[in-house]
Design a protein around this nucleic acid. Sequence first.
RNA 1: CGGGGCGUAGCGUAGCUUGGUAGCGCGCUUGGUUCGGGACCAAGAGGUCGUGGGUUCAAAUCCCACCGCCCCGACCA
Length: 567
Amino acid sequence: MRWSQAFIPTLKETPAEAEIISHKLLLRAGLIRKLTGGLYTFLPLGLRVLRKVEKIVREEMDRAGALEVLMPALQPPEIWQQSGRYETAQGVFFKARDRAKKEWILGPTHEEVITTLVAGELSSYRQLPKNFYQIQTKFRDEIRPRFGLMRAKEFVMKDAYSFDISDEAAQASYKKMYDAYTRIFERCGLKAMAVEADTGVMGGKFSHEFMAPAETGENEVVYCEACNYAANVEKAASRASQIEGDAAPQTAEKFPTPGVTTIEDLTRPPFQVPAVRQIKTLVYMVENKLALILMRGDHQLNEAKLAGALGTAAFRPAEPEEIFTALQAHPGSLGAVQVKDLPIHADETLLGAVNMTTGANQDGFHWRGVGIGRDITVNKWSDLRLARSGEPCARCGQPLKIRRAIEVGHVFKLGTKYSQALNACFLDESGKKQPAVMGCYGIGVTRTLQAIIEQSNDKDGILWPVSVAPYAVCVTPLTVAPDSAVMKLAEQIYADLGARGVEVILDDRDDRPGVKFKDSELIGFPVRVGIGEKSLARGEVELKKRGGPMTPVKAEEAVEKVLASLY
RNA sequence: CGGGGCGUAGCGUAGCUUGGUAGCGCGCUUGGUUCGGGACCAAGAGGUCGUGGGUUCAAAUCCCACCGCCCCGACCA
């Protein structure tokens, strides 16, 4: 490609809309442009990168034995009703209507479609295992699109769905995808770690997320350097730090606490009750009934765990009016002492706690000397708390660490939820009808692209890994007069590299060197070959790896040196 | 959806408090000088000041509504 013929609108200044470095660079390097919030056009250079990421994904899926298909983006709501997700996934749908006013759904994911397909084709266990994948645009009505491609209304995703005859076989399929993902991110030059994850609305059995560490990531990963335990913070278990030794249990007593409405307030004089000695009382509306959730004062509730404990995701924090009606007190003065008519769920760290302080369900009053079990009747004990940095690892006891990360991939073991609902069944060896055991596996392709930039950049711009760079080499003549020795050599190196299969761009723009250098560094071509009169007088050209020093090489060796530097 | 911020030329922005000719930098066009790290000089083009309404002799500026974008939040009582 000749730069003068290309469309590479680089920007000297950062558009005001971009907040994080990868988003800024996507715009500045001329890779994407925004149509409107959450919707982007890939410009030629950005599309080249996208295609390269897709190619790597495709190669690794094929290698793992998955079969590529392409499913419709537009889906009938009926299959979602069949799977039971029409209601639960309501929030993410973009909907459309045809001329007959019938409703359609712009696919946010494709479990229903693929399972419907398989249901129609599958009859015998001999047909399994099968794993189908596609690379397709998904549509999700995100609550808040942000950070460019990171969270968009429309994005490219690779999704794969495996069908197996048994749990064990499904496990093998899962492992294959897990391994494929590890290779994919490695080949993309992206640091990503597999972490245990919550299954959320997918309703699966267990799952791993592939997380690319980055400060701007929207997720938090809890990990242990000692034993390699790693989990999404929504899932992460930590060992409960017990409350230190107690004096003899005191008797519960109500005391006035005018104006006190937070855990923090109670830790200050005159009360000076440490947060670990407090019981935080949260009120939730669970399927239209109120429930109390008790946490230790220094702990935070993890809603993903709460969903697991409640067995439903249909809950929300109660409104203050609802709380007052039920407990005759406002948030900040709530407690579970002597509450008999509401279900009480408690985090297991409170088990056996005595001498605790908690709200009295009377504004301006708290109880102290409260003993769980004696003064509060807990209906269900569960692990409900958010793991924190420094807490002992649940496996090995070493301190846990937390870091932010971008979720780039997710593998789920689904079980038979969808195959049962949509009748994707087969006859086993004994002639018995069985639902296929499924798994599903996603990679956010466009998000991966941006995550690579987020991890690989410096003050001058992007540092593309060779595997996904829009062009591997930028040949930069400092003079472009057609009959000059400099340009002639540039043309020759450009042609020779192209002939050797290297993706190369020739910066034939009649611009000053500084402009060309800045642009090539902003875009981040892995290797630049600079050709100028001065060095050429010595029979040399300049080889510069992005982010590295400039090294002179003999002009006649340039092509070989470039090839060597690429691998 | 709640809160906050912002909409002025392709991009970045000043002007708004205190109403009175819309300004600057980058980019763009033309000419010239330059030519190894985002050149310089000169002359230009380019604006429904987000949209609609209101107040006023007069609105980018004040008021109302709407639209759009960005950020934070939407569990921590």
